[in-house]
Design a protein around this nucleic acid. Structure first.
Lengths: 362, 362
DNA sequence: GACACCTACTAAATCGCATTAGTAGCGTCT
DNA sequence: AGACGCTACTAATGCGATTTAGTAGGTGTC
């Protein structure tokens, strides 16, 4: 009888390899490989027999071995560059990741996910992953107006999908084909919808509290706001954008400044849910009724907007669907397809109780 | 001259291997391997020369090759089993992941992160990762009172760290040593602190709106509430817990039911930030002042609690620190250390404006 | 019946690194 | 001078798959 201590130290079961299958099925290792990868070279009978043995042994290909010979890692990468401070309350990323994985898990492709502090670290990570052959491709989020990543990825030859907007084009004369697809939503149209809603209610003084100024979609939203304001004959000085870092603190601070001004806006559009809730909270703290004297719109819906008091009118996006779309594009790219630019579903506005007509005295 | 299309299709640069380094440095491949892995067998001079060449070439070990020969993947796994519906507003996971990666990135260890729908899928994923040798170990979150995972991981021989509480012990007589460490926080003491705060303010009718009933920490908190109530001589019928699924919807619903009762509680403790905000919102909607007639405490702080109106008294945990601790334990385990149970920093209560004395007429 | 041709397989090379087993050269000790 | 030990290396093997290059054995053809 073995002592418990000894028994406990026994090695875990050895994982079966194709060699084990080959031996049990009485064929060569190559035959096993052909059979399990649906390649010609084995008869239907033999193939079935090999499959059966593989199932019995619970065999799964060693991903390292497959990566080494197949030159693929069956793994994609996603880096989130955000200072820990703003690591957020947003449900955006988990939703996105969840959508991405719906597509990937069906293909036995894994996802390396990493949170880093800044863009430089993100770029360094791409280099490392590339050099280590850790990933076959990456999903790039938060595209910027002046983005170093497309050029880097093109130089590395690392296939990628930019999520959230057309990224800056790679510089001319790249050494390699930029294998960069883009999945984006039409922020301009979405902004127009918000403006329709507010304009129809009668608002003429509207401020857009945007997110980080460097991001491409921030620029698109700001530009769209201006264009749409002009198109509706609104006074450009009364309809404008200010930028923040997306944090509740800056959202609240910007709101305070706006409400303190001589002619405060009658409606504020916030670029994310956290700032919108923070802003509504500032208004409540000053006794400014929402939507009585101030209408609030959140760009991006979440439980946060629904539990706020009053519930916030929000721009609803299918974030998980966006993730599915992006993952699908990256797989297509890896499969040899051409880089594409795909537009996701247009977000729609969910009017709730935080928007209403502006006060009469305006 | 080459056509642009052709030039664009050129292959990306080949990544250097130790063979390239060996050739350029005029030594054998083994010498290179020794030099770059700090093993004896090469002189200091040669080592330096090889290092220099490696740097010049920008060499990084191919992770697949290293995994194949080294029998390690240099990769850990983290699975989050949450139905998409409750995929949250909580900052908990991103913070945790961020802390984990602070430790891992220094060791060139990657993290596979996957969001799945339920526990069965999570278990299946562990099996697959194990069979594919994708990961060296896993970080297990949301330990349950009746948890199948420790036994599974023990059977597979997959090292793991349970985050968030002592998981159920593996069944007796396991086939292999359970390589399971635990990192936890003392929920009982934390609950006692909250109760101290509320009891000192004068509250006698306190309800705890807990999270998922199956989770180990839910059970610990519920148990602690009861124990602490008894210790303070409180009426056990007036101090109790109800369970939810952590969603804002169930948090709000539970709050409504409580407020409709004959003798509503004067204080509610919510097991996460989202439910706390939702609950405070319900009270506001009914014209019940917080903290005038109802005090609210959130278990887990976040921007959410700070932007709420009034800001919520919350139990603050160093979640990223928790992640660092867990990652460190897993690395220690992989390094051959014994399984341990480590207690993280005790959470502290941050009193804000959502708690105050109960109303006089109580 | 010699030849080509296909099918169904096997043997062997390969991927990039780690590691074990040599081996040459040199100094030391008796 | 021969045995010994040490240093600093090289050669060879293995990890577990994929893939290419064979090779029996059967069939068809003129």
């Amino acid at each position: 009888m073995t002592a418990p201590g000894e028994a406990a130290r026994r090695k875990p079961a050895r994982r079966p390899t194709i060699k084990d299958i080959a031996r049990r099925a009485g064929v060569s290792e190559s035959a096993v490989s052909f059979a399990l990868n649906d390649r010609p070279g084995v008869s239907a009978d033999t193939r079935a027999r090999i499959r059966k043995v593989a199932d019995e042994l619970g065999w799964q290909a060693n991903s390292a071995a497959r990566a080494l010979s197949g030159e693929r890692a069956d793994c994609l990468g996603l880096v989130l560059a955000r200072p820990a401070r703003t690591l957020g309350v947003e449900s955006f990323f988990l939703q996105l990741v969840s959508g991405i994985q719906e597509v990937l898990s069906a293909r036995r492709t894994a996802l390396l996910f990493q949170v880093v502090e800044d863009l430089d670290t993100e770029c360094a990570l791409y280099r490392r992953w590339w050099a280590e052959r850790r990933v076959d491709g990456v999903l790039v989020v938060d595209p910027r107006t002046d983005d170093p990543r497309p050029a880097l990825l093109a130089a590395l030859g690392l296939p990628a999908v930019a999520i959230g907007g057309p990224a800056a084009p790679a510089p001319t004369g790249p050494p390699t084909a930029p294998l960069l697809s883009t999945v984006w939503a039409d922020d301009a149209k979405a902004m127009a919808r918000i403006l329709d809603h507010l304009h129809d209610l009668g608002h003429r003084r509207i401020v857009h509290i945007a997110g980080l100024p460097g991001l491409a979609h921030t620029a698109r939203r700001i530009h769209s706001l201006r264009t749409e304001a002009v198109r509706r004959g609104l006074d450009a000085r009364q309809v404008r954008s200010v930028t923040t870092d997306y944090s509740d603190a800056e959202g609240a601070e910007a709101t305070r400044r706006l409400l303190d001004a001589a002619a405060p806006p009658t409606a504020i559009i916030y670029d994310n849910d956290v700032m919108a809730v923070a802003g509504a909270s500032v208004a409540a703290g000053r006794g400014i009724p929402v939507p009585g004297r101030l209408s609030v719109v959140a760009w991006d819906d979440s439980p946060l907007c629904r539990v706020a008091h009053p519930p916030l009118t929000a721009l609803v996006r299918d974030t998980a669907g966006f993730g599915r779309l992006a993952a699908g594009e990256l797989l297509a790219l890896l499969g040899g397809g051409p880089p594409r630019t795909v537009e996701g579903e247009l977000p729609h506005l969910a009017p709730r109780e935080s928007t209403g007509p502006p006060p009469y005295d305006n």
